[in-house]
Computed example of a mutant assay.
Amino acid sequence: MTGLTIGGAAQPERRGNLWTEALARDPEHSKNYAERWRRIEASGQDVYGEARLIDAMAERGARILDAGCGTGRVGGWLAQRGHTVVGVDLDPYLIEVAREDHPDAAWQALDLGQLDLRETDGDRIRFDLVVMAGNVMTFVASDERRPVLERIADHMDPDGRFVCGFGAGRGYSFDEFFADADAAGLALDLRLGTWDMKPASDDFVVAVFRSR
């Protein structure tokens, strides 16, 4: 981990949200990203491994949050199989693509650090499962990581689970992630190395948490 040394202790490097920084450098970033995934899906490649794992974990008709949903690849597949899906992403363009390509789910443009989904009576919406695929946590600003995980925990049903996966070498170590999750009130139940349930590795993590 890189960082500054202050008073003899290494301090983690602070950084902003990598997605918004990419948009600042290239206004076409979201459009190009969406078109790439549309091409991949249209080619017949299997892009639903994360969704299949979540479906296997869920009761029929489960309430599922797709956190950092992008173009709706995961949540849209789950909605087609009868789950009640809400997808949230900070990029309004990607949300519009999700609405167009996957109309069976509900999609909202919202920063996960500000996540506060409410029922019509004002009660917070609770989910049976929360999925965060596509390296989402590694894009989050360093000072927003723990608040994002706290918001996720606040939206979980008491018996709900949170499943998050991302790769190594992206500026957010697995040890930091597990420490942040623990501080956010999430208890680790299972650590895997891939979305198809291979053993834990140093290259990729898929972690299943419950509320503590």
Rank of each mutant, 00 (worst) to 15 (best):
residue 7 G to A: 11
residue 10 A to M: 12
residue 10 A to G: 10
residue 11 Q to W: 15
residue 11 Q to P: 06
residue 11 Q to T: 11
residue 11 Q to I: 14
residue 11 Q to L: 14
residue 13 E to T: 13
residue 14 R to L: 14
residue 21 E to T: 10
residue 22 A to S: 15
residue 23 L to M: 14
residue 29 H to N: 09
residue 29 H to W: 13
residue 31 K to A: 06
residue 34 A to H: 04
residue 35 E to M: 04
residue 35 E to P: 06
residue 36 R to S: 11
residue 36 R to V: 01
residue 36 R to I: 00
residue 39 R to Y: 03
residue 39 R to A: 05
residue 40 I to C: 07
residue 41 E to W: 08
residue 41 E to L: 13
residue 44 G to W: 05
residue 45 Q to G: 01
residue 46 D to C: 02
residue 46 D to H: 09
residue 52 R to E: 00
residue 52 R to K: 03
residue 52 R to H: 00
residue 52 R to W: 00
residue 53 L to G: 02
residue 53 L to N: 02
residue 54 I to D: 03
residue 55 D to G: 03
residue 56 A to V: 04
residue 61 G to K: 01
residue 61 G to L: 01
residue 63 R to Y: 01
residue 63 R to T: 08
residue 64 I to Y: 00
residue 64 I to S: 00
residue 66 D to Q: 02
residue 67 A to N: 03
residue 67 A to E: 03
residue 68 G to I: 09
residue 70 G to K: 01
residue 71 T to S: 10
residue 75 G to K: 02
residue 76 G to A: 07
residue 76 G to E: 06
residue 78 L to C: 05
residue 81 R to A: 07
residue 82 G to I: 15
residue 83 H to C: 08
residue 84 T to D: 11
residue 85 V to M: 01
residue 85 V to T: 02
residue 86 V to R: 06
residue 95 I to V: 15
residue 96 E to Y: 01
residue 99 R to K: 15
residue 102 H to F: 15
residue 102 H to R: 13
residue 103 P to C: 03
residue 104 D to H: 15
residue 105 A to W: 10
residue 106 A to D: 09
residue 108 Q to I: 12
residue 109 A to D: 09
residue 111 D to L: 11
residue 111 D to I: 07
residue 114 Q to P: 11
residue 114 Q to D: 14
residue 124 R to V: 10
residue 126 R to V: 09
residue 126 R to D: 07
residue 131 V to Y: 03
residue 132 M to N: 08
residue 135 N to C: 07
residue 138 T to L: 01
residue 142 S to G: 01
residue 142 S to W: 12
residue 144 E to K: 14
residue 144 E to L: 13
residue 146 R to C: 12
residue 148 V to L: 08
residue 149 L to K: 06
residue 149 L to W: 09
residue 150 E to F: 08
residue 151 R to C: 05
residue 152 I to L: 12
residue 155 H to T: 04
residue 156 M to W: 06
residue 157 D to P: 05
residue 161 R to C: 13
residue 163 V to K: 09
residue 166 F to Y: 10
residue 167 G to A: 10
residue 170 R to T: 13
residue 171 G to Q: 04
residue 172 Y to K: 05
residue 174 F to T: 03
residue 174 F to I: 05
residue 175 D to C: 08
residue 177 F to T: 02
residue 178 F to P: 02
residue 181 A to H: 06
residue 183 A to Q: 06
residue 183 A to F: 03
residue 184 A to I: 05
residue 185 G to R: 01
residue 185 G to I: 07
residue 185 G to C: 01
residue 186 L to K: 05
residue 186 L to W: 00
residue 193 G to H: 10
residue 194 T to G: 11
residue 194 T to L: 08
residue 199 P to G: 12
residue 199 P to L: 07
residue 200 A to R: 13
residue 202 D to A: 10
residue 202 D to V: 08
residue 202 D to K: 12
residue 203 D to V: 07
residue 206 V to N: 04
residue 211 S to M: 07
residue 212 R to G: 13
residue 212 R to T: 13
